[in-house]
C-alpha cells in the first residue's frame, strides 16, 4: 500500500550565497494513514519548515515529497491550494479564526471554496461543530468564546471538509493545562474514531505524549523517530 506521506532526502534552503541558511538538510520520513505523529524540536531546529512543507504551504529546495503518491514538489501554487482544500486541514497556535464572524460561518469557510450549496454547508458545519462539542455556539463570534472553545471551532473548521490529514501547529500553545487536556483528548478521539492522520508540532513533552509516534528534529535532521511507549 502507498504510504500517506513519503519524504525522500528533503532539503530546504532559505536565501542565497553567503546568506543561505539550510533549514532542512535531508529528511527521510514515511507516515502511514491513521498515524498520530508529534514533531518535536527546539526553535530553529527546522520543525516549522518541515510542517509547512508537509502542509503543502512551502516547497522543498531538493528531494521528493509524495502525498498519496502525488509528487508535491512538482505542483504549482494553485495545485497545492487545491490539494490543501481537498485533503488537508490546519489548526494553529493562535486559532486564526475570522474576527466578527460567527462560529458557523468560520466553519463553513472551507466549504465555500469547495462550492457546496448553502444547505450542504450548513449541515456539514453544524455536524462538525457538534462533533467538537460546541453544538450550541453556532452564532457566537470568536470574541464571545473562550480560548479552548475558539480552538474547538478551529478544529471543526479543519475537519469539516473531511481531510485525510490534520496539521496542528502548537495547538495548545495558547491554552491553560486543563484546556490543553481537553483539546488533546479531542484530537486523540478524532484520530482514533475518524481515522484522521494527525501531524502535530509541539515542544511540550506532555502534549507530545498524546501522539503515537514522536519525531525529534535537530539542526534540520531527524535525531530520533520512535513509537510512543505510553
Amino acid at each position: 500500500m502507498t504510504p500517506l506521506i513519503e519524504l525522500r532526502n528533503l532539503t530546504k534552503t532559505y536565501g542565497r550565497g553567503d546568506a543561505a541558511f539550510q533549514a532542512l538538510r535531508g529528511i527521510n520520513l514515511t507516515i502511514a494513514q491513521g498515524e498520530f505523529v508529534a514533531i518535536m524540536g527546539h526553535s530553529g531546529s527546522g520543525k516549522s519548515t518541515l510542517m509547512n512543507t508537509l502542509g503543502c504551504l512551502d516547497t522543498p529546495t531538493t528531494g521528493n515529497y509524495l502525498y498519496q503518491g502525488i509528487a508535491v514538489e512538482q505542483l504549482d501554487a494553485d495545485q497545492r491550494s487545491l490539494l490543501r482544500r481537498h485533503a488537508l486541514g490546519f489548526i494553529f497556535q493562535g486559532f486564526n479564526l475570522l474576527a466578527r464572524t460567527s462560529a458557523l460561518e468560520n466553519v463553513e469557510l472551507p466549504l465555500l471554496y469547495r462550492g457546496l450549496t448553502k444547505r450542504q454547508r450548513h449541515q456539514k458545519a453544524t455536524g462538525a461543530l457538534a462533533s467538537v462539542g460546541l453544538p450550541d455556539k453556532l452564532r457566537n463570534t470568536p470574541a464571545e468564546l473562550s480560548g479552548g472553545q475558539q480552538q474547538r471551532v478551529a478544529i471543526a473548521r479543519a475537519i469539516v471538509s473531511d481531510p485525510s490529514t490534520l496539521f496542528a501547529d502548537e495547538p495548545t500553545g495558547n491554552l491553560d493545562t486543563a484546556t490543553t487536556v481537553e483539546i488533546m483528548k479531542l484530537l486523540t478521539r478524532l484520530n482514533a474514531e475518524n481515522g484522521i492522520t494527525i501531524i502535530m508540532v509541539t515542544h511540550e513533552d506532555d502534549v507530545a505524549a498524546y501522539a503515537k509516534r514522536i519525531v525529534r528534529i535537530t539542526d534540520g535532521l531527524i535525531a530520533s523517530d520512535k513509537m510512543n511507549e505510553n
Binding site: D78, S81, H86, N96, Y113
Partner: peptide
C-alpha cells in the same frame, strides 16, 4: 493579511 493567510491555508487559490 492574516485572514488572507487563513484563506490560502484552507485552500483558496491566488485567483480566488
Amino acid at each position: 493579511t492574516r485572514e488572507i493567510g487563513i484563506r490560502m491555508a484552507i485552500g483558496a487559490r491566488a485567483r480566488e
